[in-house]
Design a protein around this nucleic acid. Structure first.
Lengths: 158, 158
DNA sequence: TATTGTTATACTCTATAACTATA
DNA sequence: TATAGTTATAGAGTATAACAATA
């Protein structure tokens, strides 16, 4: 006869906890997937101390040479003052340059440095691996399906 | 003849910006959906100053009367010290009680107060509306599909 | 020895408001 | 007047390390 479960005061494992209505909420699943994503991104093999947010900023700067900070703010849904902090960070690490913009002396023209370009190349490989881990047991049809459904929740692109 | 587009220094709209490979990444779409979700949650009609995270904590405490803080930490993937802050916050607002646990004098037994239970009832209605807004243009089949695919990314429940 | 809750501390990410230089 | 960048400041949200009480 196996020992009876103690009725109280034993530490509960995750699966012994009642999550109420949470698992039924798409919003909750989205949140949890995002947490898993972030941890895997930060701690994957060969972690390079760049968050998903910073990675996005580097990609956008590379794809839009001489982008203004205000435009970057709009693209990332960040406040202009937040972009200052972000670019300070990337400039301190030698990944991004603030240059003088040509036709508007108020603006900065953002560019990746040589180091920034090199790091981004590595990061892109890392992100590709990260996506593969995340979607390891997905068929291609499932991947595309998830993709389209997420775009439908947040229809900014396409 | 329409005026030609100025080649430089004009403010770019979101859709004029090149997002590089970002829109092809499931991780990016997940992140953006999460940002949209959070903003809608916080700013929906009749906003009640509770984040998705706090809502989750309230639901879990209600569903597990006399839960210990350590178990809550495990359930939410938060550090024990972070749970102290979270419960301090909810206790200050009169939504949660720390009671003495029965068989372990180290532990607290967490309970919703009457006010906490009442607020959670309102929040649940609000979250249901939030989910409806978020998935307004989804068919039921699409909703279920998104749901299952997200669970597959983060397979903690089920 | 190990676990529970706590404190002290710090770091990241973000925003608001007010300022300056420039348009 | 309006916009671009900046500064000062503040508030979430989170973690690590060390500690006392208890198991």
């Amino acid at each position: 006869m196996p020992p009876t479960q103690a009725p109280t005061s034993k530490a509960k494992t995750r699966s012994e906890i009642n999550y109420g209505l949470l698992p039924e909420l798409v919003g909750y699943q989205l949140r949890m997937a995002q947490i898993a994503l972030f941890r895997d991104f930060a701690q994957g093999p060969g972690e390079l101390d760049v968050t998903p947010g910073l990675f996005g900023v580097l990609v956008i700067i590379e794809a839009n040479p001489d982008l203004k900070q205000s435009d970057l703010a709009r693209a990332t849904h960040l406040d202009r003052s937040t972009v200052v902090t972000v670019i300070d960070n990337l400039e301190r690490r030698g990944l991004v340059d603030r240059r003088a913009a040509l036709h508007d002396r108020r603006s900065n023209a953002l560019r990746l440095t040589t180091e920034g370009t090199a790091l981004l190349r590595k990061l892109k490989r890392q992100v590709t691996q990260h996506e593969k881990r995340l979607l390891g047991n997905f068929s291609e049809a499932e991947r595309q399906s998830l993709f389209k459904l997420l775009q439908k929740v947040f229809p900014e692109h396409r």
